[in-house]
Design a protein around this nucleic acid. Structure first.
Lengths: 201, 201
DNA sequence: GTAAAAAAGTATAATGAATCAACTTTTATA
DNA sequence: TATAAAAGTTGATTCATTATACTTTTTTAC
């Protein structure tokens, strides 16, 4: 669906292996000693390459932790395009994010990784940034779906807020409940909330 | 309203002067040559202080560009608390943000500054981060206003989205229109939009 | 009014991420 | 097989930021 498919040459195989060795070494060391306690040099040494080689594979220290997920964007767009009949766009996005980004991380096996990322500002920010990269693609998919013009501000807003909903949810005690609250707001608006007195149309 | 009020000692006066000299020199140099072309050393020299002194006044290179606005948060909270009768929370926030963060910047005199910040990823991100710092205070103000419990996820979501609306608006051709679209979404929900077929309750 | 404390500032060196330039080895291919 | 492209290496270099140890200024308390 993307690159040179199955027949990888020896070259690309070795390249991928080096890259993987770097990512593995980095994650292991970060989990063992903490992100700030591990230097680029340590990682390169552990993977038995030079630091310059490391930077040819990864754009920076934080990138070592995140797999550059190409499919993630496709899945997000598909969640909108191929949602079941009768399901609204916000509902489709809520379910997709809940399934792929909240429930998965809730697995106790991911706890140390989760703790590493959320406990390191540089990693939290970087993760958030690459997640938000899907904003324009998602906005476009929503616009197409609803027949709105390219770059319609309402679609752009929904796309942005839907992606941000993940950050909101993660900052709360009960992420699932918080995600529901955020998407209820996006679906029905603040005026639809119970304790919303003093409102004007 | 905050610090040692009028009677500033010589010490604090000089300190403030040094700080201002640094901020002025930084902004001037950044505007002249671009953020990445100016080093910390250049700024310190222009303000005639050592680089160590610079870092005693500012937490980092990006902070030189932004006045650490203490009142900003107070104004945001006040916009919710002291809004006119009959105005909803989203409407109050929309107006406040439009007035203090969109219309002001639209002044052509701010164009170079605006261009500097928006054209420099490090500055754009930093500015966004300090703006989002008001999230919890705003969420609390909203919760108090509506009688919701502390840390209510719907209030947290509204606070987050309302602040993010600024970023959405700035990324569009017509920021004012985009801000309206974003706040319409927050106020009335996606289901209230015209081209919103295939929706479920 | 002076002495001690607190705070601002300086110089210098170190760390750590990221980049640059020049070179070697490996792999693929014409 | 020759050769070009890509992977990797070495070593130096830049730049923001921090640490250490020192000097000067201003305040405050006696």
């Amino acid at each position: 669906m993307s690159e040179t498919t199955p027949p990888l040459g020896r070259r690309e195989r070795k390249k991928a292996a080096t890259r993987q060795a770097l990512a593995d070494a980095a994650l292991r060391l970060f989990l063992e000693h903490g992100y700030d306690q591990v230097g680029i040099k340590d990682i390169a040494e552990a993977a038995d390459v030079s630091t310059t080689t490391l930077f040819k594979h990864f754009s920076g220290k934080e990138a070592l932790v995140f797999d550059e997920d190409d499919d993630q964007e496709a899945a997000l767009v598909a969640a909108v395009r191929e949602r079941p009949d009768g399901q609204s766009v916000p509902a489709a996005l809520r379910e997709h994010i809940l399934r792929t980004r909240i429930d998965v991380i809730a697995d106790p096996a991911f706890a140390p990784f989760r703790q590493l990322v959320m406990g390191t500002p540089a990693l939290r920010d970087y993760g958030h940034r690459i997640w938000m990269r899907h904003e324009t693609a998602l906005a476009q998919a929503i616009a197409e779906d609803t027949g709105a013009p390219q770059g319609d501000p309402a679609c752009a807003a929904l796309a942005h807020f839907a992606l941000e909903a993940l950050a909101v949810a993660r900052g709360q005690d009960d992420p699932r409940k918080a995600l529901d609250a955020a998407f209820d707001l996006l679906a029905h608006g603040w005026h639809a909330l119970p304790g919303c007195t003093r409102s004007d149309p």
